[in-house]
Structure formats: structure tokens, C-alpha cells
Amino acid sequence: MQAAMMSRLGVAALSMLVATVAPAAAYTAYVSNEKGNSISVIDTEKLEVTKTVKVGQRPRGVALSRDGGQLFICAGDDDAIQILDTKSLTIVGELPSGPDPELLILSPDGKLLYTSNENDNLVTAIDVATRKVVSEIPVGVEPEGMALSPDGKVLVNTSETTNMAHLIDTETRKIFANVLVDARPRSAQFTADGGELWVSAEVGGTVSVIGASTHKIKQKIAFEIPGLAKEAIQPVGIKFSLDGQRAFVALGPANRVAVINAATKQVEKYLLVGQRVWQLAFTPDGKYLYATNGVSNDVSVIDVAALKVVKSIAVGSFPWGVAIAGR
């Protein structure tokens, strides 16, 4: 069928097609293995794990420094954020994170790290250079998802048991708005223009689209997959494509990533991935999307243009977070 299709395509289109399925540029993906207490390092060109690095206990959220030279790892059960040097692949230091850090996000200038402390209902701001806590912001119960507006002025934290997105002014470091969403909010993401804030509710089964300036829910996106119980559809990670036209939402035990038209909010496709798909990350060129599958202990690699899963890569036990750097 593919051959027949290709024969109908013109030369120009053919060369485009070849370009989209050409080997990925050489990037490095870092996947945290929550129960493996390790980071799997993946060569995105070879699509294989090149090294597994032992790190602290219960590593979940990961984020790269702006130059890609350092990977910050939330080691929840060690109550610390570890710093992995991405050249030597050794732990070179720790940041004081407060108890049980789960997810983190770096300020646009790369100077501050914000992390959610799941056990203590706090968001902690850490100065990366001095390695000091500069602020602790009380939020709801079980803080989880973290997002920053493109201009860096608004920090968003979701709290799983409080069921809110807390909007925090990064200058005053105070909450200025709380938006109630559906049960167990996990991930938050701003659209590239900063106009919308998308928040996934794992147990509620929806994604709330919030007006960034109105602090009101504009729309809720629901999911329906034939043959699957509605309780099994549990949205977690959200990522927008580089061109901003599509949103990808990991649906947990539904074992699928939903592809959503960012403008119309319509679900265009469900991509079958591994079991309990969790977090997502794009390669820097935006061509591939990596999805961590918590239960099947692998990551699925999605070809963004073709909307196809092209590879599963076995990693460590309970893969959770993923970050991808250029080389």
C-alpha cells in the first residue's frame, strides 16, 4: 500500500516524505526511572539506550539547563534535586529542594528553578548559581504540575488533591489566582503565545483550557475511545508541537497519546503507545515526541509529521520524566 501511495506522489512530495522519515538529528534523551533509581540515556539517532546512570531515590521530574550541560533531577525520596553533568554523566552536586520534590521548571533566563514539594504543599524557588532556596510558596495539597508563561511572569502549579491550578506572580512570588479544575490535575502548559493555559485532570479525565488573562475555564476537552471504559482515560502529560498547531496529551492507562488540534480543540487521532503513558518531550527540532510508559518500562517515539509511533525503546523500571538535549 505504501509503495502504491508513493508512486502516486510527485518527486517534490517524495523528497519531503523522505525528509520526514530520515534519521533524527543527534540528540540525547534523558529518561528518569522512578523505581529503577536511574536515568536512561538515549541516543535519538540510534534510538537506543547508550547508558544507564544510577541516581538518587525515586527520580521523577527532570529538566535541562539552558545550555544542556546539566540535567536537574527531582530525587523525591532523597529530598533533593540532583545535578547531573551531561558530558561526564556523573552527579556533580545537589540543590536544596525542600521535601519530596516531584516536578521542576527552569526560568526563561535559566537562573531559577521552581519545584513542587509533594509532601509539604509548597512550591520552592531555588537560585541555581548560589544553590540556595530563595522562596517557598504555600499551595494546595499534593502540588504537582509546573508551567511558566512564555514571558516568565506567571508560574503555574497544579495541586492534585486540592484540584486547582494556582497562578503565581514570579516577581512577588504570591498566588494571584486559583482556578478549580477537574479531579487530580497533573500537568499544566501554556500555549506559545501565552494566551491559553491547558491543565490535565487525571481522574476527572479532562483537559481544561483556561484563559491566561481571565483565569476562567474557556473549554474542557474530553476524550472518548471506543472499547475503553471512561475511567481508564486519564490525561497526564501535555506538550504543544513547535508550530503550536497541535497538542499531544498522554492518556495514562488508556495507553494512548491524544493528538488535538490546538485551535479547534478537536481530538484528531489517538496514537497507541505503551502502558500507562505519562510524560512527553519533543526533540529540539520538534520532529519526534518521546513518551514515557510507566508500566511497560519503555518509551514510545512518535514521528510528529506522520503521527505514527515509530519505535519503542526499553528503559529502566517505571520510566517517569523525559528531557531531550541537543549535542
Partner: peptide
């Protein structure tokens, strides 16, 4: 109404 109560589904 639905409640999240740590048993995997609403």
C-alpha cells in the same frame, strides 16, 4: 461529582 481517592480511577 467525582472523587480522586488513590485507587486508579474516579
Amino acid at each position: 461529582f467525582s472523587i480522586a481517592a488513590f485507587k486508579g480511577q474516579k
